[in-house]
Structure formats: structure tokens, C-alpha cells
Amino acid sequence: MAVDTLEPRGMRPRPFFTPRKIIIYSLLFFISVYYLFPMYVMIVTSLKSLDEARGGNIFALPIKVTFDPWFKAWDTACTGLYCEGLKVGFLNSMKITIPSVIVSVLIASINGYALVNWRFKGSEVFFVILLFGSFIPYQVMLYPLVIILRELHMFSTLQGVILIHTVFGMPILTLLFRNYFASLPPELFKAARVDGAGFWRIFIQIMVPMSLPIFVVAMILQITGIWNDFLFGVIFAGNQNYPMTVQLNNIVNSTQGVKEYNVNMAATILTGLVPLAVYFISGKWFVRGIAAGAVKG
């Protein structure tokens, strides 16, 4: 059959620039600029000398790049009483975050497993209260917790703040693990039980190896959450164990002395570095974590 060449045929013509596309991409561009410029300002300010930071334009690139503010923030900046920089806080944050993440993920994974596969009378009730508990403002529970930790001789200690992080990380993590374990085929668990495996054996040899993705998600959630914590650190860790966020706030918002904005910005970036690294490396896992925690609940 002779086909009229003017007749529509094949792919619908799609001009590269349509008004719709131009609007969408320019919107996305301006939004991205809004989200990125604080990071840009932080970085350029941290690379300027103090005079340049105070005298110049916050958007301008440094005339002369200097890393002194970074060294100063890390090594000698004053946090109220001491002038040892952020390195102390960094170490403290490590000492708090690593054990807290391990303990809280471990406990929550066992909770989730018990809730799905080994229900006992009242287990669901406890779970529901746990979930609702996560909405209670921390301020309501702070003071009694101080009393309890003092009685346990754990107030102002690393163990104390680790315990607190474990307790308050429990609702969201337990929910995460419970939902994940519930999505595994129950036959797997039944087969293992018929084979005579017990509570711990099934958990360690069958459930854990099948659940690595959710462990990754939980770890990401906890590392960023605990690293970024301020309130629990300031109350429960004690002066000598202040985490990085508290030290940072003390450096920047301490009232005495000249404000060294370049050092402050370097310190701010340093504090954000760990969660940002986790975020950029983990990519879609991070997204999965917050979406799984929120949407399924």
C-alpha cells in the first residue's frame, strides 16, 4: 500500500525543548541551587582567612585559599573551657555512636524476630505501646531517666548515653525489623523448627543471613541519627564525653572572644562529614530506610 509521507507515522515528534520541559528543568535547577548554596557558603567560608570572611561576600570564592581554619577547628578551637578543638568531640562521638549502633540494632533485630515468629501473650500490646512511645516528647521522660541512670551509677558516662540511644532507637528499629521479618516466607521458619532448631539457632543461622539489607538500612538510620543527636549527649554523656554536635555548638555559640566565622564553618562541615559520607555512600539505602520506617508504620 502506498503510504502518504505526510501522514503521521512512527515516533510522535517530540521537540527537544517543550515549554513543559523548560519549566520543569528550570524549576529543578533553581530548587537545587537553593538546597546547595548553604553547603557552598560553608565550604568557601571555611577556606577564607578571618579578615576575608568578615570583609568579603559570603558567596565569593576565597581570594587566597587557606586550610588553617580547618586545622584550628580540629585541633585548637575553644569549646568553652578547653581549647583542644573538635577532635575530642569527634572521638567521643565515635565512642558513643559505634557501641550504640551495634547494641541498638542487635536488640531491635531480636525484638522484631520475637514479635514475628515467637509471639507470646501480650507481645503485640508491648509493640503498640513501643510505637506510640516514639511519639512522646523526650522532654517528658528526661528527668526520671536522669534519676534512674544516677541510681545505676551510669549518669554522665558513656554507658549511660549508649543505653539512652538504645532505648530511644528501639521503636523505629523494631518496626523496621518486624516488618522485614514478617515479609519473609513463614515456611522457612516452620521448616527450621521442624528440623529441631531453637530460638537462637534459627535467628543466627537463618534469619540474620537473609536480612543483611535491612541490617544495612538500620545501621544507616542509627549512625546518622546518633551522630546528629544533641539533646541526649548534652544531658547524659557528661562534660568529658560531650559528642561532636555539643562541642560544635559550644565553639560557635560561646560568647567570649572574637567570632571566628571561618573556623566555625570548618567545624560545622567537620561535624556534618560523617553523616554526609554515610548518606552519599549509601545512596538509595538511606532513602529506603526513611521510607520504610515511615510509610509502612
Binding site: I31, S32, Y35, L36, P38, M39, V41, M42, T224, W227, N228, D229, F230, T245, L248, N249, V252, N264, M265, T268, T271, G272, P275, L276, V278, Y279, F280, G283, F286, V287, I290
Partner: peptide, 17 residues
């Protein structure tokens, strides 16, 4: 990634910037 990265930061960092 660009829209979500601030969420990975501490409120303290956000506040200071």
C-alpha cells in the same frame, strides 16, 4: 540526592549554617 542531603545533617549543623 541534592534535595535530601540536608536531612542527613544535624539540626545543629543546619542552625549554624
Amino acid at each position: 540526592t541534592v534535595l535530601l542531603y540536608p536531612f542527613a545533617l544535624s539540626f545543629i549543623v543546619t542552625g549554624l549554617v
